[in-house]
Amino acid sequence: MATISYTSRRELEQHSFPPVVTILVPLGAIILQAILPKHFLRLAILDLPLIVTIFFSVSRRNPVAGTLTGASIGLLQDALTNQPIGVNGMAKSVIGYIAASIGIQIDVENLTTRVLINFCFFLLNSFLLFLINRRLLGVTSFHILWLHELIRAAVNTLVALPIFFLLDNTKRTE
């Protein structure tokens, strides 16, 4: 009798999403990110596209998909700014790749894990942006305020948790 066996956690819990969700959720995150600070300036501290990148990457558990998701969202985000196109694209590509790689290894459904990965990825994103701006683009006036970045990471982690739970309902288990 043939038995079904799983060789890895990736095969056990790999999820996919409907195409509508795959397109509309990142787009909605970018649009909301563009609209919200106009009305509530404090909300500029949020980075909804990064939250969505992390969610899709850890859920799909596919580094290539994670990289491409991060690159697409980051490039679209860059296109709306006055920065060179690719700054956020590169940072989010790396985060998508690492998030997907971590998703294979650990249980990302756990609340504590989600808090930790979100907080760490937001700090990593700030560090990557600092590296790209200072080292790659040579913007010497670019400074990073680590206290602000810590607060930013904490706030975004708090916002990410309900979004993760909301998006969990759109998962399709393969």
């Binding site: 563009a34 609209i35 106009k38 709306l80 006055n82």
Partner: peptide, 11 residues
């Protein structure tokens, strides 16, 4: 009608 959505880009 909108912003860049980034703290690093004031447009």
């Amino acid at each position: 009608v909108g912003t860049s959505g980034s703290e690093l880009s004031r447009v």
